[in-house]
């Protein structure tokens, strides 16, 4: 037998891998267009409900909500801009692997994926990207319609949008890896649902989904500023809308990167331990 050809597992390999996986993912999802759109719209409901609450609350206060503690002030148009942007960014950073892992572990569906020379996270991440490509194309008109209906206050300059792009990308990767860590929990317990709900609850407050972080009560606001949830949720949104003072931008980016590194380390550890565990109960 001849010696096997040398394989390189570098950036070019992964670029090619992702290209192929994304193509496949798009092809699969095109067959489930309708379900995909429903999944996508699912993400709209939360921000819209939050917006409705804050709109109603602000009308009770003559149109403006002011947090006396930190001077943050929001008018109807600001709320609309915040939650509309949150809706779009929320969609871009969405991830659902935790829901599937339990099934994979229980049925052994993970095994064929383990035979490949790359870890399954790459195939899964590619699928996530395919989903966003497909649904964004379909949901774009819906966003435009909503923007027209809700009349958000536009950001003061286009620069903030440009600056928000890397923040959004980081947020998407961050949330993806954090969610994947959560998915790994399926190796140890069959009750991922409750844990997922806990994550969702904490994220709702600390990530800025139920209210802009500036309107949270003091202690919750402090907690939010230090948590990883801000970087995955509210930070890119606030940045895009130009609501973050210049001197706070760099530290917030650093926090994103820091938490991403933590997530990556956690993922590696959990994946290793999880595989052992998976193999202990029988793959």
């Amino acid at each position: 037998m001849s010696a096997p050809p040398e394989r390189r597992w570098g950036a070019r390999y992964f670029a090619e891998l992702y290209r192929a996986q994304i193509r496949q993912g798009v092809a699969v999802m095109l067959q489930y267009r309708f379900a995909m759109v429903i999944w996508g719209v699912w993400g709209f409901v939360g921000p819209l409900v939050s917006l409705a609450i804050w709109n109603a609350a602000s009308s009770a206060r003559g149109g403006t909500i002011v947090n006396a503690a930190n001077g943050a002030s929001f008018q109807r148009g600001d709320f609309a801009a915040y939650f509309l942007t949150f809706m779009v960014f929320g969609h871009m950073t969405m991830s659902w692997d935790a829901f599937e892992y339990g099934w994979r572990v229980r049925t052994g569906g993970l095994s064929p994926l383990l035979l490949r020379p790359v870890d399954p996270i790459h195939a899964d991440a590619a699928r996530n990207v395919s989903f966003k490509l497909i649904t964004s194309a379909i949901l774009l008109p819906v966003w435009i319609l909503l923007a027209w209906l809700l009349q958000p206050t536009p950001p003061e300059s286009g620069w903030s949008l440009l600056l928000a792009t890397p923040a959004l990308l980081l947020a998407a990767v961050m949330r993806y890896v954090w969610q994947y860590c959560l998915a790994m929990v399926a190796f140890w317990t069959t009750r991922v649902e409750a844990i997922q709900q806990l994550y969702f609850t904490v994220d709702a407050f600390l990530g800025g989904r139920v209210a802009p972080l500036a309107l949270l009560p003091g202690w919750l606001g402090v907690l939010a500023a230090w948590s990883p949830f801000r970087g995955m949720g509210a930070f890119p949104v606030e940045l895009a809308l130009g609501r973050i003072p210049a001197e706070q931008i760099a530290p917030a980016f650093l926090a994103q990167v820091g938490w991403l590194v933590v997530a990556l380390l956690a993922y590696r550890a959990l994946w290793r331990l999880g595989l052992r565990r998976y193999s202990a109960v029988g793959a």
Binding site: S50, A57, I65, A194, T201, A204, F205, V210, A211, P217
Partner: peptide, 19 residues
């Protein structure tokens, strides 16, 4: 947990408006 999310989000909004 779902209940906490809903009540919490209401409570925050109600901080700013009594009704």
């Amino acid at each position: 947990l779902g209940l906490m999310t809903t009540i919490g989000s209401l409570a925050i909004a109600f901080q700013y408006a009594g009704r």
